[in-house]
Nucleic acid binder design. Structure first.
Length: 316
DNA sequence: TTCCGGTATC
DNA sequence: GATACCGGAA
């Protein structure tokens, strides 16, 4: 990519930027060479066979990029070439906020502010922004815009991303060799390595539980969930543990496990053991619903899954 | 094993 | 605003 003056081929800039989304330079290089050899222009790529493009992309990951790549190439070819403005580029498939700014700045030397993950990190450190991501993103973009120069914005954008990729790295920033060491608020405060902060991605805990599908007299035991809390007020199979309650089964039976259903709640993942059995006596809680009157669609998703699994056994 | 990262989608 | 999509690196 020739530096300065917007001499770069928009097609090659676009192709490399799309490949570099979520992907390292080292991984991209061979793919870029291969693609540009096979399809030297956007018209060539637009005319390419879908299956061949997908095959050539194989191994790069995020295959939606490859599908969008073709859609974008065809759209650009149909309009006689790539748009030159950020907004025009932004409207094409697979080109978002970052890529549109990058192409405008690098291929056309437009004074757009290019903010990728590297730039977010560099700016958060330069200005010691302690607000966690992603909430800090608008602030970081606004701060980055104050830095974009009128001259050679494309080279500047690439330099900022290079700085983030090679010196201002996530874990151990090489502040000792950073050209901006005297401009960096975070370095001055001794907190560079801890920025940018991020909202702790609390992984959803895994919970387990048990649901009893209890038959008696041609019916199955249901009960209403407590009005408040998880699945509050809904119709449910008697169950325990997953919701913090440690209840016994709704009666005596020879229980046999038939499998587990998985369900994702907003704040945890559930693996529910499904057991079925024939009660010796009337259930000691809940009420019996005749099998042919069970309305699958009236059950919450979790219990629907339980019933779908149990029905084959029950109705047999 | 965890972290990292643009876009689309809902 | 959260999640899915993937592979590479720490």
């Amino acid at each position: 990519m020739p530096p300065g003056g917007g001499q770069a081929d928009p097609y090659r800039v676009w192709l490399s930027e799309v490949m570099l989304q979520q992907t390292t330079v080292a991984a991209v290089r061979a793919y870029f060479e291969r693609f540009t050899a096979l399809w030297p222009t956007v018209q060539d790529l637009a005319a390419a066979d879908d299956a061949q493009v997908m095959a050539e992309w194989a191994g790069l990951g995020y295959y939606a990029r490859a599908r969008n790549l073709l859609a974008c190439a065809r759209a650009a070819a149909a309009m006689g070439g790539f748009p030159t403005t950020r907004d025009g580029l932004r409207a094409l498939p697979g080109i978002g906020s970052y890529t549109s700014a990058a192409i405008a700045a690098i291929a056309h030397d437009a004074p757009e502010t290019v903010v990728d993950g590297n730039v977010e990190r560099v700016v958060a450190r330069l200005f010691a922004v302690e607000t966690p991501l992603p909430a800090a993103k608008p602030d970081l973009v606004a701060l980055a815009e104050t830095l974009t120069p009128a001259t050679r914005p494309g080279d500047y954008a690439q330099a900022m991303m290079d700085l983030g990729a090679t010196i201002c790295t996530p874990r151990n920033p090489a502040c000792g060799i950073c050209p901006l060491i005297h401009d960096c608020d975070a370095r001055a405060a001794g907190i560079a390595a801890s920025l940018p902060r991020k909202v702790p991605k609390t992984p959803k805990p895994d919970r387990t539980g048990i649901a009893w599908v209890a038959r008696h007299g041609g019916g199955v035991v249901f009960e209403e969930r407590p009005a408040k809390g998880l699945l509050g007020g809904t119709l449910a199979f008697p169950s325990a543990r997953w919701d913090g309650r440690d209840l016994p089964p709704p009666g005596n039976a020879e229980w046999r496990g038939i499998g587990q259903v998985r369900h994702v709640f907003s704040h945890f993942n559930l693996s529910m053991q499904v057991v079925v059995g024939d009660l010796d006596t009337a259930p000691d809680r809940g009420h019996l619903v005749p099998v042919d009157r069970i309305d699958r669609d009236a059950l919450p998703g979790l219990m629907r899954k339980v019933w779908d699994m149990a029905r084959a056994e029950i109705v047999a």
